[in-house]
C-alpha cells in the first residue's frame, strides 16, 4: 500500500458516501444516472469475485464489501425507494448501457491476462469501469443546473482513478514484477474521459459560478 493508492481508495470511498448522503438524506437522486450506477454495481460484482477465495487483507475485504454494498443499495434506492425513484429523470437518462457492456465483454474475451473465467471477468470489470461514467456525463450535459453534491460526486469519482495512476507509476518503479497493462490503459482512458468535466468543474470553482457543462 502506498499513499497514492490510499488517497485513491479514500477518494473513491468519499464519492460513494457523498452519493449515499444525497440519496439517503434528501431522498433525491436528481441528476444521477441510474445506468452508471448499474454499471458500477456490475463492475464491482465482476471485479470482486475472489472476495471469499483470495484473502488479501482486512482493509481489502472491508473496502470490497463497502463498494459492493453501496453500489447495489444505490441501485435499489433509485429503482425501488418510492421517494427517491420519483426524482429519477428516466427521460433524460437514456444512454443504452448495453452498448457499453457488450464491447467490454468482447474485448475482455480477447484481451486478458489469462483466458480463465476470473481473469476475463477481471479484465471486463476494468474496461467497463473505464466507460461506466459515460451515461452520467451525458446526463450532466442534459441537466441544466447541476447541484453541488452531484458535481462533487463526479469529481471525486474521477479523482480517485487519477490517484491510482500515480500509484501505478510508484509501484512500477518500486516493485520489479509489477506490470499490469490492462489496468494501466483502462485507468488512463477512464481518467481522460473526465478531462473536460474537470476543466469545467475547476472553472466553475475558480469563477465561483454554478457548474454548467456545454450541451
Amino acid at each position: 500500500m502506498n499513499i497514492f493508492r490510499l488517497a485513491g481508495d479514500m477518494t473513491h470511498l468519499m464519492s460513494v458516501l457523498v452519493l449515499l448522503l444525497k440519496i439517503h438524506t434528501i431522498k433525491s437522486c436528481a441528476g444521477i444516472s441510474l445506468k452508471t450506477q448499474e454499471l458500477y454495481a456490475l463492475v464491482f460484482a465482476t471485479r470482486y469475485l475472489d472476495i471469499f477465495t483470495d484473502f488479501i487483507s482486512v482493509y481489502n475485504t472491508i473496502m470490497k464489501l463497502i463498494f459492493l454494498g453501496s453500489s447495489f443499495s444505490i441501485v435499489w434506492y433509485m429503482r425501488r425507494h418510492k421517494l427517491v425513484r420519483r426524482s429519477y429523470d428516466k427521460e433524460q437518462d437514456t444512454f443504452r448501457h448495453f452498448f457499453l457492456v457488450l464491447p467490454c465483454l468482447l474485448l475482455a474475451l480477447v484481451m486478458n491476462e489469462k483466458f480463465t473465467f476470473k481473469e476475463v471477468m477481471w479484465a471486463f470489470s476494468l474496461y467497463l469501469e473505464a466507460v461506466a461514467i459515460l451515461p452520467q456525463l451525458v446526463l450532466l450535459q442534459r441537466t441544466k443546473n447541476i447541484d453541488n453534491l452531484t458535481g462533487q460526486y463526479v469529481f471525486l469519482l474521477g479523482a480517485y482513478r487519477a490517484f491510482y495512476i500515480f500509484n501505478w507509476i510508484y509501484r512500477y518503479f518500486t516493485e520489479p514484477h509489477y506490470v499490469h497493462w490492462i489496468t494501466w490503459i483502462s485507468g488512463l482512458v477512464q481518467t481522460l474521459l473526465y478531462a473536460d468535466f474537470f476543466y469545467y468543474y475547476f472553472n466553475s470553482w475558480k469563477n465561483n459560478v454554478k457548474l454548467h457543462l456545454p450541451a
Binding site: 475472489d50 473496502m63 516493485e175 489496468t183
Partner: peptide
C-alpha cells in the same frame, strides 16, 4: 506483500 499475480488492488 501478495505474490505478483494476485490482484491486491480494489
Amino acid at each position: 506483500s501478495a505474490t505478483p499475480d494476485v490482484k491486491d488492488e480494489l
